[in-house]
Amino acid sequence: MSLSLPLLAAVGVLGLLGTGLLGLLVTRNLIKAVVGLQILVKGAMLALVLAGRLAGQIQIGQSMALTVIVADTIVSVVALALAVQVRRQFGTLDLQALSTLRR
């Protein structure tokens, strides 16, 4: 079992990354895009922990992941705050509507 744990984690990383990116590509809703971003970053965190484990320095991997959690939380808070403002000013969270700046 212990042998397959890294493998499992690697599959998890790829799954999270793929899901996150796919979400970012297909959603038309800003909140869902932020969620996609969250999933993507979760994949990166898991990758860091996994890397720590593979390198035999799990503590470093974990502490990096913790740092990322903090940073990611800040980014998410900012993102959601912007989303609130977007809803207020645009009256929608539709990403298609959020394309007045182009060309």
């Binding site: 590509l25 959603t27 990403l95 959020l98 394309s99 182009r102």
Partner: peptide, 11 residues
């Protein structure tokens, strides 16, 4: 015209 300003396409 390829710069359509939609976030999904940018990603």
């Amino acid at each position: 015209t390829t710069h359509n300003g939609v976030l999904n396409w940018n990603v």
